[in-house]
Design a protein around this nucleic acid. Structure first.
Lengths: 274, 274
DNA sequence: GCACGAATAGAATATTTATTCCATGGCATG
DNA sequence: CATGCCATGGAATAAATATTCTATTCGTGC
């Protein structure tokens, strides 16, 4: 049937997968991609479920298993069941295991940040004001152009928004201060500025926000607290507080908020065009 | 049959188990003890295997399942399988429901992304390999200089790492392609490259990775799946898969991983200096 | 020590799930 | 344009697996 014996470990499986994944027919490629993306599901799902999730017929999935060198799905599943048995424990106990690896260890740190991210997300879901969010989306949907600014820790968020808007063909400009160039004069009537900053608040961001306000542009703020100086420029302020670990903060919740904002604006703009 | 409905979550399962575990006949007690001891095996084993491992007959194990409130073993196994593989199936329908309800509303979208973020984080905690993470941290701690590359959706992550390393006085260089300039020749022996890319994989990132490898530098990868082309350059690959909402993905889990990586490297480097 | 009921084991059955096979359709090659 | 090959879908079949049933055992109360 096939030129090679069945993979005996996940590593071998991975190797084989990358080896063959080029020059595979369409459906086989779908299987390969799906398996690569959701390896954890192989151990606990049936052929029918997996094939449906991958968007192929059960028989196609079977053929894929054979191409990978297994006699069939069952043999492949066996490999995954055996190798996932150890790392299986549910989320909570798994976190404890990671932590137990020692308080300074990378795994323990990761566990801390995962937990912090989860708390931040829950917090975000609880505290966000639907009306404010709605107002922000409405403003951005009407905008002639969307300007983005964020420095330091906020810069990744601004970048991501820029990427998202770009993907949805929404005109946007990232004020990234490359070469210390200043594009403030690109802010014209009818535009909207998204200003992102967290304590300690960046001077440049605040200044650009008040500049935009003075030009009569609306300002949507992504910030961290009620006492953020962005409130002073009359911005529509979305607040998101990240739980910190030691002196460090991830951006898990902030990114969820950012992508939700972007997608909401994108769909509303599309709806308006039809 | 039994006085109560089937547990709907692992927590309910645990509660019920402790409730009934006293005053149980001998074989039932054996089952209870075994299940309590090896809950992870339920999702991936058959009744025959489990009952043998617990030292009882298959039929005894069946009766245990019923005592726990399930109709049979299959229903109980389903609970364990579902709580492991996050239920993708109803994700699509949930989205459709949202749309049908006319609620492309921003708050509903945010709720979706918050949920997606949470699932991604849990998934990350479950699937990360401590050994790989350790290897990555070690490599980065030894590095003369850390190079960072990531395009499109991965760029915010690269930016954040750059910011974090900078804050900890760790020499790093972000290959941001501003002005289409290429700094590949700044990659010198003893350096390490952190390459970040998700499907569809960025050509530039892959190319820089193989360039670095050819120069004899280690490559640490942050990527999304087993079949990422970064595996082919022999990178130490940390995998993190984000749950998507429609066509969009946030970066919640990726950022938790990134910040944990950065902080771990920072503390280790500090420890080495003293 | 006997009779009764619960508990158990093992075999028989029903159901689910993997696997194979064959007919069809599309694509590239001659 | 015709021909052959390969990929694909769907249905038929085979295997594995859960589930139920019944005979037997074990313990308990009279």
């Amino acid at each position: 049937m096939n030129d090679r014996a069945a993979p005996a470990s996940l590593d071998e499986f991975r190797t084989r997968l990358t080896q063959i994944s080029e020059g595979l027919p369409k459906r086989m490629r779908q299987c390969a991609d799906f398996v690569a993306r959701h390896p954890e599901r192989i151990a606990v799902s049936t052929v029918a479920e997996l094939s449906q999730a991958a968007g192929v017929q059960p028989s196609a999935f079977m053929r894929f298993c054979q191409i990978m060198g297994f006699s069939g799905f069952s043999q492949m599943q066996k490999l995954f069941r055996e190798s996932y048995a150890q790392r299986w424990p549910d989320y909570r106990t798994r976190l404890e295991n990671l932590r137990a690896a020692g308080s300074g260890s990378p795994s323990a740190l990761l566990a801390e940040f995962v937990e912090a991210g989860r708390l931040s997300l829950e917090n975000l879901a609880r505290t966000v004001e639907a009306a404010t969010l709605e107002k922000a989306v409405e403003a951005l949907s009407q905008a002639r152009m969307i300007h983005l600014v964020g420095m330091k820790r906020a810069f990744p968020v601004a970048c991501y928004l820029s990427y998202a808007f770009d993907n949805m063909d929404i005109p946007s400009l990232l004020h990234d201060r490359v070469g210390n160039l200043d594009h403030r004069h690109a802010i014209l009537p009818g535009d909207v500025l998204v200003a992102i900053t967290f304590a300690p608040y960046s001077h440049e961001t605040l200044e650009l926000a008040s500049f935009a306000r003075d030009k009569g542009c609306e300002v949507v703020a992504l910030t961290d607290a009620m006492n953020s100086p962005l409130h002073r420029v009359g911005a529509t302020a979305l607040m998101v507080s990240e739980v910190d670990v030691g002196a460090f903060r991830a951006l898990s919740a902030t990114f969820s908020l950012a992508v939700a904002l972007a997608v909401a604006v994108g769909t509303r703009r599309n709806a308006a065009m039809e």
